[in-house]
């Protein structure tokens, strides 16, 4: 297996890891968003949706472990790349003209990724932990919709959540097409389509996930 680690540690290999894990996470987000949209249908619909997942818990646990690994790979590898790339270019130019030759999204992957990572920790420690183990922070009940309402009613939480989702959109906007470029699927016929899909996807994700805290903070009349 020497060839495999050698391949994955090469400059192109590291990109490949980023792209594969990135695509996995992109797919996960679609499923995640689809389920969460039931929030807008009210407490019953959402609770019902969560309950339907109950019988699949063992499988979900496995998927969660895989997802966690994918995240870890994506993050660790991303940081490794960043460090290596910093070393390849230790000195900066006196005039920064990066905006003239590259997109903002492409240059800020580390920053947007880092903030999304902080978000992830917060997200897991609030939603994932309460949904699965702790129940409602105040009542200890496993009333899922109420838990959502509880968190999103905290303005600092909701605002951070919204900002993180915008940055996630930035991250995805570059990451989506970038993954295809890394796989070598770039030709003049299909690539513009991929770029378009990537843009639409990232907007849908940012708006989709971001709309939930917005809804609960400003429009949900429950409290």
């Amino acid at each position: 297996m020497g060839w495999l680690s050698e391949s994955l540690n090469s400059s192109i290999g590291k990109k490949f890891v980023m792209a594969v894990t990135g695509i996995c996470l992109i797919l996960f987000l679609i499923v995640h968003l689809a389920g969460n949209l039931t929030l807008f249908a009210g407490a019953e619909a959402f609770n019902a949706y969560v309950h339907t997942l109950e019988p699949f818990k063992p499988i979900i646990r496995v998927i969660e472990v895989i997802l966690a690994l994918v995240f870890v790979f994506h993050i660790v590898n991303g940081v490794r790349l960043w460090i290596a790339n910093r070393q390849a270019r230790p000195e900066r130019y006196a005039v920064n003209a990066a905006s003239k030759n590259s997109s903002y999204f492409s240059r800020t992957m580390l920053s947007t990724g880092s903030i999304v990572f902080i978000f992830l920790i917060l997200h897991l420690s609030s939603f994932w932990a309460t949904f699965n183990f702790q129940g409602h922070p105040e009542t200890g009940e496993f009333e899922f919709f109420e838990i959502v309402v509880y968190f999103f009613s905290m303005p600092w939480y909701a605002v951070f959540y919204i900002i993180a989702m915008v940055l996630l959109g930035f991250h995805l906007n570059h990451g989506f097409q970038s993954a295809f470029q890394t796989f070598g699927w770039n030709n003049s016929k299909y690539f513009p389509v991929i770029e378009k899909i990537g843009q639409i996807y990232s907007v849908v994700m940012a708006v989709g996930f971001g709309s939930m805290p917005v809804y609960f903070l400003f429009f949900y009349g429950g409290n």
Partner: peptide
Amino acid sequence: GACTNTYACEAECPKGISVKNIA
């Protein structure tokens, strides 16, 4: 360094060599 697909190379290349080559 490794490529992070910012495409600054293509933008600055005096011959307009395409990043499709990287793909």
